[in-house]
């Protein structure tokens, strides 16, 4: 299968290791990965902050980059950005009366999958240890991000994939379904409430005794990781793609700092 990677802007710029890990997983399964280079961002920060007019060019750019016959399905290592592509893009196009953009956005959305969705539903991965060689000998807890859980209905796909990694010790997160408080610009506009939510999330993470918290959305992980770092905790966050890509020979870095763990690039 020819799979187009939508890296998402935050992963592209801040967490490249997550995108590399995604590529690695898909190539390991024997698929070809392409990277439509016109891509930038899904525009949900603009939409969710009420700046629809400013969101339109961002959305149009995404649709233009992915409206090609050059791939079979697209994938992003983010539930939130995929939900935006699937739900917000057609909605915004409709609200500004752009029929053509709406049609094309709907078509792109229909071909776009969140990583665990693609792995489980399309590529038939049920045992990461056996099928991907995933190996990660750490105690890990997992935060299911809201948009993956409630907008994409990912259910336990991410958790099951993680649980099937060889060597992993999964610790259940109390109140896992509670939002971490990120919410994009909410974290700045309503910083006090957001921080209060984050405090409870990090306390629950600490209570599990895990050495790191995994998840499927880099933005939430940056939020949770940023809070843990500020509190002086040793616990860090890591995207599930990096855990799935981790093998005995090439283990993922778990120090929390943004690092390159695949390919030849220096650390």
């Amino acid at each position: 299968m020819r799979i187009a990677l939508f890296a998402t802007c935050i992963v592209d710029a801040m967490y490249p290791a997550t995108a590399r890990a995604t590529v690695k997983i898909l190539e390991r399964l024997g698929h070809e990965v392409v990277f439509p280079s016109g891509q930038a961002c899904c525009g949900q920060m603009h939409v969710n902050s009420g700046y629809i007019k400013e969101a339109v060019p961002v959305i149009a750019n995404h649709v233009n980059a992915f409206d090609t016959e050059d791939y079979d399905v697209a994938v992003a290592p983010s539930g939130s950005c995929v939900a935006s592509v699937k739900h917000q893009h057609p909605m915004v196009a409709r609200s500004c009366g752009d029929k053509d953009l709406e049609t094309r956005a709907t078509a792109v959305g229909a071909k776009t999958y969140e990583l665990s969705e693609l792995l489980v539903d399309v590529l038939g991965v049920t045992d990461a240890g056996a099928q991907l060689g995933s190996y990660f000998p750490h105690r890990v807890t997992y935060h299911p991000s809201c948009h993956g859980m409630r907008l994409l209905r990912l259910g336990d796909r991410q958790a099951r994939l993680l649980g099937s990694v060889a060597g992993i010790d999964m610790a259940e997160l109390p109140e896992a379904d509670q939002c971490c408080g990120f919410g994009g610009t909410f974290s700045m506009k309503n910083a006090d409430v957001s921080s209060a939510m984050l405090e409870d999330k990090t306390a629950n993470i600490a209570a599990t005794g895990a050495s790191l918290c995994a998840g499927g959305d880099a933005s939430c992980l940056m939020h949770i990781g940023g809070g843990l770092s500020r509190q002086g905790s040793d616990v860090t966050t890591l995207h599930l793609a990096e855990i799935l890509a981790s093998t005995l020979e090439e283990p993922a870095s778990v120090t929390g700092e943004v690092r390159v763990t695949t390919g030849k690039a220096t650390r």
Binding site: S187, M188, S194, S195, G225, G227, V258, A265
Partner: peptide, 27 residues
């Protein structure tokens, strides 16, 4: 306004190279 973020969270240091750049040059 970004001070709202840093009131309770750090931001990690950015990477040396974006994914896009790595893809172009090294993938």
């Amino acid at each position: 306004i970004a001070a709202g973020w840093t009131q309770s969270r750090d931001i990690p240091a950015p990477p040396k190279q974006s994914f896009r750049d790595w893809w172009k040059k090294e993938h």
